[in-house]
Simulated scan of single mutants.
Amino acid sequence: MAAKDRFHQVVKTSLIKDGWNVTHDPLQIKVGGVDMEIDLGAERLLAAERGDEKIAVEVKSFLSSASAISEFHTALGQFINYRAALRREDPNRVLYLAVPILVYNSFFQLDFPASMLLENSVKLLVYDIQLVQITEWKT
């Protein structure tokens, strides 16, 4: 079982405050003989259901001592793999990458990360750590 990201609970509480019902913590998927848990950064997934909308959320903090680009490589790779797995096993569920607002407003605005998010159609959930709330949904 993978460790939860430092801001896992912040994102979970923010989803609940935003009217979502958290249904899986983590969301486990088996696809092509591989077991996956849609990670919360340091590894666990949130899945939430709102009306007939279903989402999965991969939480990332970008706090490790590694470089931001290394964490971005990992996050983007996980997002692409999890999205492909969801398409096969739970096609009605939409995947979001959750990132702190400070990271979104700085690193994610740089040309290269921004272009990779666009090129790979990454949906973002931007959260505020201090206010414990979702500030933006970027689709």
Rank of each mutant, 00 (worst) to 15 (best):
S65M: 05
S65G: 13
L63F: 03
E53N: 12
R93N: 07
R88A: 12
L97A: 05
S64L: 08
F108Y: 11
R87M: 07
A84L: 14
L76K: 06
R44M: 10
E43S: 12
Y104L: 08
E89F: 01
L95I: 07
F108N: 06
G33Q: 08
L102K: 13
E71H: 00
S64H: 06
P113I: 10
I101V: 15
L76Y: 01
R83V: 01
S65L: 07
I55R: 08
V57M: 08
K60Y: 09
A48H: 08
E53P: 03
D111I: 11
A68R: 06
Y82C: 07
S61N: 05
R88E: 08
S67M: 01
R88W: 00
E53I: 04
A66I: 01
L46Q: 08
R88T: 10
L95S: 04
G51F: 04
M36N: 02
F107P: 11
L95C: 07
G33Y: 10
V99K: 08
S67Q: 01
H73C: 01
N92T: 14
I38M: 12
V103H: 13
M116R: 15
D39H: 07
A68G: 04
E71G: 03
Y104N: 14
G51H: 10
I101M: 12
I38R: 10
A56R: 06
A66S: 15
H73Q: 04
A48Q: 04
A47D: 08
K54W: 06
L40D: 11
G33K: 09
V94F: 06
N105S: 10
S61L: 08
R93I: 12
L95H: 07
S64Q: 07
D111G: 14
D35M: 13
S67R: 02
D52S: 12
R83D: 14
A84Y: 09
A42P: 14
T74L: 14
V103M: 13
R88Q: 12
D90S: 12
Y82Q: 02
A75R: 03
P113G: 12
I80A: 00
L117E: 02
R50I: 04
I38W: 09
Q78K: 11
E89W: 00
E49D: 15
E89H: 05
R50G: 00
Y82N: 04
P113D: 11
E37Q: 03
E89T: 02
I80M: 11
S115A: 15
L110C: 05
P113K: 14
A75V: 01
I38K: 06
I80C: 06
F79W: 09
A98M: 07
P113E: 14
I55N: 10
A75H: 06
R87K: 15
Q78E: 11
A75E: 02
I69M: 10
A114M: 14
A56W: 05
I80F: 05
L86R: 09
L97V: 04
N81S: 12
V57F: 00
R87Q: 15
V94C: 04
I55W: 06
L117Y: 07
K60C: 02
D35P: 13
N105L: 13
L117I: 13
N105I: 03
E89R: 13
L86T: 05
S115G: 08
L46W: 10
